[in-house]
Amino acid sequence: MKLSKKISALILSVALLIGSFGQANAAKRLHAAIADWTGGIITCEVAVAILEREMGYKIKQTVFPSGTGLWEAIAAGELDFACESWPSYAEADTVMLKEDLIYEGKVVGTYSGDGSVDLLGTAGIIGMSDYWIPRYAAEELGIKTWKDLNKHKAKFATIESGKRGRLIGCPVAGWNCHDQKRLDLLGIDFQADELGTEAAAIAEAKAAYMRKEPFLLYLWSPHWFFGEYDMVGVQLPEHKTCDSFTEANNWKDCGTAAWPATGWAKDYTMNYGNPATFASAEHADAKKFFEKMSLQNIDQAKMLVEVDIKKRDVKEVVNEWLDNNPDKWKSWLP
């Protein structure tokens, strides 16, 4: 009995203590997602820092893996907004958005979903995806484009791929990269390995680079990897689409002229949020801010280097950038 009394006394008193000191905060609150790649984290941190510094917000941030789950969480109002969605990779955008995406006055994407998620506006970042090899390998082997890859496939082979070369492919099946399909259509005798996470793919690439081995890597830009390691793209054919050429249609017609035999489209990235939250009068300012926000690739790339290579704190780097470049973001304020 002695024990249980001790425990209950402890619990009770801690509860009392909590009761006496907990206090509420009066600021306007929003709940944002922290992305799972550094570029996305920085873009969102810029938005969060401006909302907090200039517009009196207090933003709660939660790490959340990108994907359909994130879109559903936003639609359900669990989170208020998330940043930098890449149209090539998102699956939910076509179902949930119902607006045009406008970049510098031009319509770059049209969506006709159910409108359960609100397209807040462009994030400004324009993404590019490609296959890359390290410059030392390109120069040593004389590889200029993807057409030269087959000649040197033995150099790119690993235990698992046998005689074929190995592509460190798009890590997640849900991103719909169709790597193996592309390699087959283009006649590149490589095997695409899906490693499950970006971390796994980058870890292998980093280790191979440190050992100066040749490797072929799928990656998107801007990415910190390019700041630290010298990579060259293999210049896949320019992006083209063909309506009957989809997985559901079993890749009929169009031959090798269209996606996925081509490279990726330019990704005009966007911020998105919960429609009810941003329709409310309380958050009208925030909505205006997101309509104007447009972070440039070069600025994100600079911060990426600070964060991922110099290993500095994200908040510190973003605040420093805001302090030094007021001309770049003052115009975003409502």
Binding site: I168, D193, K206
Partner: peptide, 12 residues
């Protein structure tokens, strides 16, 4: 997981 990845690469 990271050290394993750096030394052995990704895969089965």
């Amino acid at each position: 997981l990271i050290p394993v990845l750096m030394f052995f690469g990704g895969g089965t």
